[in-house]
Design a protein around this nucleic acid. Structure first.
Lengths: 345, 345
DNA sequence: CTCAGTTATACTCATTATGAGTATAACGGG
DNA sequence: CCCGTTATACTCATAATGAGTATAACTGAG
């Protein structure tokens, strides 16, 4: 009854998934590879990339060498270095995905596949197309998460109507569904919480609004395929990563993993906005990071701003010792939560 | 190079670990089982408990049934129900531990053991000794984490001196070490951050201040065994759990998983204090949860308080829809961090 | 019955953080 | 030299936090 006993265990395979993120041109990007969609063998996608005709995007996936790799994280760094030529900096374990049939070949007798997913952040400059791996916009996959230009069209147009119908669909669970829709999507005047990315994706999955839902036999029929599809459960993993990063940015100085050594404050702000998916108040952002001790001026000037030249700043490491939770404080730190009125029905 | 390919994989075993926490008598408790320490086969501890002579505490550990269990979490719930008779309520995945040799039998050819650890919270009332499982105080294992009665003696007495020596031990890394000691233990006037439980445990491990350090061949000699030892890397898992819970309590109403349906505000406060390891300001705590909409009065009175009778409150679910991050806000929410002057050398 | 000890609960006040502006500076391009 | 654009310095109202003061309502000792 313990792993220490069951030496003659059934087939389980442990894999590693990497969500490698960068921000370029004010867009968050994720490193993807292509997986052939040939059935019944669905997967196969190696990091070297596409094979046959129909392909599907997916996350780089690698093995654990049980005999060689000292730790899971080192295993990840090893094969990302070997196959994508990227030396990862910031790496953090995300979540372990182990649902049955997450690899469709399990249905036809394949082994159970457990995947330990990691989040890695790389700098703009590291972005160099390599082999068959390709950078893609995170919001291509999760378009309802980008509020920088206002309420995402797909939210009002496609998601909200279906959710409202779903609310009324079940008499008994009506209250639970109302609460869930409110909390995750801010329906009915509840606040939109940028961090609940995973919960939103899962609700869309359940209500048949993402293509992945139709691949799962038992699930409701597909109403609409919102956002770009991914192989396996990789979009779920991506959603987990974005949600985690949005949360972390508030209380840990992780943004600095994504910008160059020195940067203007607007560059930094745009990077945060890209991840958070919302626009920030410029003067307050400056006050937060400058007076808050997160950055320090270098005295150097970046002249090509399109307007008045800006000072270049750098991350101030000492803040780690000075403050408990140094982060950039997204809107909503006020307890009362903003009113997202897009759904006031 | 992907899990999808390596069907003929080497031996990897996936286990599940449960950190089951409750708070009784104002002390956080963890459910433990006994593992025999017989070498060279170190482990073996089943949930039914102790075997031979020398035993070591550990966390309940169970298997994943690759063919039967639909999800990892359901697998966990299943065997905790089956072997400990506890029906888990709140469950959350913690972290996946996969370092080589975390099961010492790997050194003698045993399979690589990957453990997915979960955090579960149960109510006071659920605590009923069952089989050989036993509740133990969390701070027996991590005594430096409890600041409710002031600075823990072991910090000033045993830890700080060794850390100061460690600081000076290496010329080249001096600055890194200073930063690390400051951030994790609040040395030299840096603030103490209650959430960095894991980082503290790992620093103690590296400096040879916990018994587990001496079990690892390559590590420094044991200077002192602070806190109660655990089997395998279970104390590291426990530290992960406490740190995660302390963080979560700030922005999610998880405390309510640990108290009865109705409770007095002091009961609630003591529960939070037990987890956070610090004392809170009573009037402000009341304001936070009451005016903050986290709780609502029931009108009922609890007469046996030892003083004036208190009103019984209940969790107010609606807060989930109203606020973005409903939590109890531990001290240090102020950005400037408190000054922990215990180490002003 | 009174008083000390204990817990509950209502308020006050200073400080800090946040959200939203106003005002001015400094560049490039017509 | 005027305009659009970005940078940067301040102001102001409101909310959240930290630390008290002041009462209220019980128990038990004497």
């Amino acid at each position: 009854m313990t792993p220490e006993e069951s030496t003659s265990a059934p087939a389980v395979i442990v894999g590693l998934n990497a969500v490698i993120l960068a921000v370029t041109d004010e867009h968050p990007r994720v490193l993807t590879v292509s997986f052939p969609t040939g059935s019944p063998i669905e997967g196969g996608g190696r990091i070297e990339g596409a094979g046959g005709s129909a392909v599907r995007d997916g996350l780089p996936t690698g093995p654990l060498d049980p005999a060689g790799d000292r730790t899971l994280e080192l295993a990840l760094r090893r094969w990302v270095r070997a196959y994508a030529g990227i030396e990862l900096g910031y790496v953090e374990q995300l979540y372990t995905f182990g649902d049955r049939f997450r690899d469709p070949r399990e249905r036809s007798g394949g082994p159970r596949v457990i995947s330990v997913a990691y989040l890695a952040l790389v700098r703009e400059s590291t972005i160099a197309g390599h082999l068959k791996a390709r950078w893609r916009g995170v919001y291509e996959y999760l378009p309802w998460e980008d509020w920088r230009e206002g309420v995402p069209g797909v939210l009002e147009g496609a998601i909200a109507p279906v959710l409202r119908q779903w609310l009324r669909g079940d008499r008994e669970e009506a209250e639970d569904r109302r609460e869930r829709a409110g909390v995750t999507f801010g329906l009915d005047g509840a606040p939109w919480n940028g961090e609940r990315v995973l919960e939103r994706y899962e609700l869309l999955f359940e209500t048949g609004l993402v293509a992945e839902a139709s691949r799962d036999a038992g699930n409701a029929t597909l109403r609409r395929a919102i956002g770009r599809e991914m192989a396996f459960d990789h979009r779920r993993i991506l959603a987990t990563a974005l949600g985690r990063l949005r949360g972390k940015i508030r209380y840990r100085p992780v943004v600095f993993e994504l910008v160059p050594e020195t940067f203007t404050l607007l560059q930094l702000q745009r990077t945060v906005e890209a991840l958070a998916g919302v626009r920030l108040h410029k003067q307050n952002f400056r006050r937060l990071v400058d007076a808050g001790g997160l950055v320090e001026g270098t005295g150097l000037i970046e002249p090509r701003t399109g307007g008045r030249p800006a000072e270049l700043f750098r991350f101030r490491r000492e803040v780690l010792r000075e403050r408990q939770a140094p982060g950039v404080g997204l809107p909503g730190a006020f307890r009362k939560g903003v009113d997202s009125s897009y759904t006031q029905s």
